[in-house]
Design a binder for these strands. Structure first.
Length: 488
RNA sequence: GCCCUCAUCGUCUAGGGGACUAGGACGCAAGCCUUUCAAGCUUGAGACCGGAGUUCGAAUCUCCGUGAGGGCACCA
């Protein structure tokens, strides 16, 4: 049997990172088994549907590299993949349930429902239309009264659901009411729609959020009523707020470690300079583990080991600081050219004119420093901004290298930069090292190199001296040394 | 309130009766290295929610607490 799974978001907003993790788990499961991953848009709540949301969610999925085999944009053999385009199918099956005694038309008005709710009726509905004689129902219908179709939930007994992650979970049927299957608008609720879709789309495993566990017994009974084969259920744990209180939401801005913004939308991770591969690695590590203490792994390798059964059922918070570390690990492994290209948009956004080639020299230094791409802006600012030299003769000197010696050293450096034919990493390092050793009391170049770096870049934190000089170029380095000398 | 689920270092996790003195990772602290910041290396602090059982033996199984999360819509 071919595994067929789906990710079925509602187009009510941006793709939430928790949704992305569910999609990732589902996708890994499909790919591991050589099955199909289907994307379905569940837009039966017309009031909440947001224009463009489905597209932005698909863009987020694409960014993560979670490709689908069937979906609204590419079609497939079991389409359409947008629920509002499947009205007739739901209507047909809803009618089938009514005709076969598994569901009934309910004419309760909003006022009636409210009255029942106010009276404290469980679930706000007392099943008053469940056993209404057929002729009375027909009469109401003939009068054109609006109605919904409700499922005839068994009144007693138990329903056991078998969850791939949690095992058997037993519910009392009396705890579940006659849920609405078809709204008066003629559109189905999730309860009906997903079952009809999952059946007609031949879905073998239903992976979905934890919040569906309580209505799973309802679903099981609907599947039974249809006489359709039940897919395997797997209820995925939710992601909590950094505080541990409640589901992760944008509303709660918590900075528990003082520096981590609470990112919720996938697009925020993208804009924040995280690599999709790192985000996937990060997400896969929450609620699931590679298994042999490996923390950094490819999706390929993770996939091979992935099992729904291994998912940790406990809800978890996102360890944002670990994400930074993971992202840093991925950046370290990047090719210089790729990193330069990746960093370019952030530099440009800061108003810098970027030539990728000239950036290459500092990329090795960047790789081991960057946790997030935008951090390159501060590191490389000196390459783009002509800032006044704020250092003084004193701050450019050192106890191992008093002003007089410092001046001589900088002069020597200037002479080299001003006249050298070979301005490359090797000659720069060789020369600067020699100058430093010759002009410090200790005979160690350290103090000189440190102060020179400070003067050249004007930044307390920057890439190392040699690379910085190379990246600045000979002319700019010369000019900068002139400024330094003018301080003495 | 009712129902369901879950519970290991600060966080993410490994472990599923004896190999647990409970492993790894992030973060944190210290040291080394060092031209800043990093990176790297070494070391350190740091957890089985509580109580009863079952058992020769419980982090692991059972029950009861407690805590946390989820659900109780013509939303998904």
């Amino acid at each position: 049997m071919t595994v067929r799974v789906r990710f079925a978001p509602s187009p009510t907003g941006y793709l939430h990172i928790g949704g992305a993790r569910s999609a990732l788990f589902t996708w890994m499961f499909a790919r591991k088994h050589g099955g199909q991953f289907i994307l379905r848009v569940e837009d039966t709540d017309e009031k909440r549907t947001v224009e463009g949301a489905a597209e932005s969610q698909m863009a987020a999925l694409r960014w993560l590299g979670l490709d689908w085999d069937e979906g609204p944009d590419i079609g497939g053999p079991y389409g359409p993949y947008i629920q509002t385009e499947r009205r007739e199918i739901y209507q047909k099956w809803a009618n089938w349930l009514v005709d076969n005694g598994h569901a009934y038309k309910c004419f309760a008005t909003a006022e009636e429902l409210k009255a029942m709710r106010d009276a404290g009726v469980p679930f706000g509905y007392d099943r008053r239309y469940r056993d209404m004689p057929a002729d009375e129902i027909a009469k109401l219908e003939a009068e054109g009264k609006p109605f919904v179709i409700r499922f005839k939930m068994p009144l007693e007994g138990q329903t056991v659901i078998n969850d791939a992650i949690r095992g058997e979970v037993t519910f009392e049927n009396s705890q579940i009411t006659d849920f609405v299957l078809m709204k008066s608008t003629g559109l189905p609720t999730y309860h009906l729609a997903h079952i009809v879709d999952d059946h007609t789309m031949k879905i073998t495993h239903i992976t979905r959020g934890d919040e569906w566990l309580n209505t799973a017994p309802l679903h099981v009974n609907i599947w039974k009523a249809f006489g359709w084969e039940m897919p395997v259920l797997a209820h995925l744990p939710v992601i909590l707020n950094p505080s541990g209180k409640g589901k992760l939401s944008k509303r709660t801005q918590s900075f528990q470690d003082g520096q981590f913004q609470v990112l919720v939308r996938v697009s925020e991770f993208q804009e924040g300079g995280y690599l999709p591969t790192a985000v996937n690695n990060f997400l896969a590590n929450v609620g699931w583990a590679f298994g042999d203490d490996t923390e950094i792994f490819t999706l390929e390798d993770a996939m091979a080991r992935f099992e729904l059964e291994d998912i940790n059922p406990a809800p978890a918070r996102l360890p944002y600081s670990k994400l930074d570390w993971i992202n840093g690990q991925y950046i370290q492994e990047m090719e210089s050219l790729d990193l330069a290209k990746a960093v370019k948009p952030y530099l440009e956004e800061a108003g810098f004119e970027v030539n990728v080639d000239s950036l290459l020299i500092v990329m090795p230094a960047m790789k081991i420093r960057l946790k997030r791409l935008p951090e390159a802006v501060e590191f490389l600012r000196f390459l783009f901004e002509e800032s006044p030299l704020e250092q003084t003769a004193e701050s450019l000197s050192h106890k191992q290298m008093p002003a007089e010696q410092a001046k001589a050293a900088y002069q020597a450096a200037y002479d080299f930069v001003a006249s050298s034919d070979s301005f490359d990493l090797d000659s720069i390092s060789e020369k600067m090292l020699a100058i430093g050793e010759a002009n410090t009391n200790s005979g160690k170049a350290g103090p000189f190199l440190g102060k020179l770096r400070l003067g050249m870049t004007g930044q307390k934190v920057s890439p190392p001296l040699y690379e910085s000089m190379m990246a600045m170029g000979q002319a700019r380095s010369k000019q900068r040394l002139e400024e330094i000398l003018s301080k003495f």
